[in-house]
Design a protein around this nucleic acid. Structure first.
Lengths: 246, 246
DNA sequence: GACATCAGAATGTCCTGACAAACACTGCCA
DNA sequence: TGGCAGTGTTTGTCAGGACATTCTGATGTC
């Protein structure tokens, strides 16, 4: 059964037509106008009805297929995916995650300084050994409890960061608003027992299981923009990852 | 500087032309013929030289941009991404990971049985409560040491699995060769201390930190095809995830 | 009644053509 | 010498058309 699905286009807008179409289909799915399993009109009909060409419609649909919202099958048609597929893969930060979960994260900046990079850090960031890097250490609280100990290194001069802004907003948010566009991140997730120092900072017992994450994020150009080594209280936090295979 | 980059096409092959182009560019990057940062010819020249149209070339390049191998900028051109971007996001299994790392994983099947699904399991798999599911428990060894305790539930009748085949190959490999096409997976990663039973099975001390992963994988249609609850020895294993943001 | 065959429907691939927008560079002018 | 406007290059978007491939369901035959 085909929903009527009203889509209106603004040809004078700088937003590409295919994107306008994709957004409105996506909205319809989110609203429930297009329930899981329902079939879209075929591409030619859609193109006809909206006064667009088939490639434009295809581009819109392809965009949503890549995001995991739609499924196409040759000879069959395009359907809204079944099941509660979560949000697409995203480069999220702990801060974003907590905010989305309705919490009010609080950050305490333990240290923030520029210094010559240690050899290992310079290597992962792709800098000359000894180049200036910004090094910071923070504790993130949620619901009044310490949640994670965050340790980051950034190439110096990337963004104007102060202890004050870092207390109020997340690192990724600050980087994004400074025009840094992160595109690829590699993260390694492990676990280990808390040392005495870590236990004290995180209000855990020594030997308590901690979740560790080491991440390096790269921008458009493949330049490293951030390296982080974080530990989380396993009793209070777990990581969620959604993978989509093309 | 533009490498000459020889690409030969087989128009009689069933492999799409855009894919042939993408594969060969990808190969050239892997071989080092196209070093990071080097510029590709512009799309029109490439199309001209290969006797293809520009949309076909664009499709090939877009494919590689999505995989994180290339970067495009309007008015500038297309470049090979800097930095050592790892493999794209993939739905990997522990077995695949170990094989790729050059190890020879061994699996011991502890149990394998069909039974009515518990309520919770039926819910995550999207089945009627009490529907038949295949439940299995395995231990995975690498280099002679126990590495992980794997607990899985599958809708019954999905693939012909026996304790014998499961000892020799990975679950995901078996599912794939049975025609199951996994496309989306949601995984939650955490950590906790080992219980006495777990410690004995994994040759750890009680209370040792373990990495936990709960994953549900869905196919093309959004139907759940596998649910797993695994624990890994944190001292011997860590998870690696690469995220690409579009 | 079961199986094979065929037609219709839908997406997949590929082509040609055109204009718009962003970026880098050059040369002009103050 | 420094800033600025113009110009060329390159990718981004969009149109319209053609044929191939694959899946579903109906038809027909044994």
């Amino acid at each position: 059964m085909t929903a009527k699905l009203a889509i209106d286009l603004d040809r004078s807008s700088p937003v590409p037509l295919y994107f306008q179409v994709a957004e409105q289909i996506s909205e319809a799915i989110r609203r429930g106008d297009l329930p899981p399993g329902s079939r879209l009109d075929n591409e030619i009909m859609l193109a006809d009805r909206l006064g667009l060409s088939r490639p434009t419609i295809r581009q819109a649909i392809q965009y949503l297929v890549d995001k995991g919202l739609l499924v196409r099958k040759r000879g069959v048609g395009t359907q809204v995916v079944h099941g509660q597929v979560k949000r697409s893969v995203e480069l999220t930060s702990l801060y974003d995650d907590l905010r989305r979960a309705g919490q009010e994260p609080v950050t305490r900046v333990l240290s923030l300084e520029t210094a010559p990079a240690q050899e290992e850090i310079a290597a992962v960031l792709g800098l000359e050994p000894g180049a200036e890097v910004l090094r910071m250490e923070r504790i993130r609280y949620a619901a009044g409890e310490p949640l994670a100990l965050l340790h980051n290194w950034l190439p110096s001069g990337l963004a104007p960061l102060t202890a004050e802004t870092l207390s109020e907003r997340g690192l990724y948010e600050l980087l994004r608003s400074a025009g840094v566009r992160m595109r690829v991140a590699n993260q390694r997730i492990g676990a280990r027992a808390a040392t005495a120092v870590e236990a004290r900072l995180l209000d855990e017992r020594r030997g308590a299981p901690l979740l560790t994450m080491v991440r390096t994020a790269y921008d458009d150009q493949g330049r490293a923009v951030e390296h982080g080594s974080h530990i989380y209280r396993a009793s209070h936090y777990s990581l969620e990852v959604t993978l989509i295979e093309r």
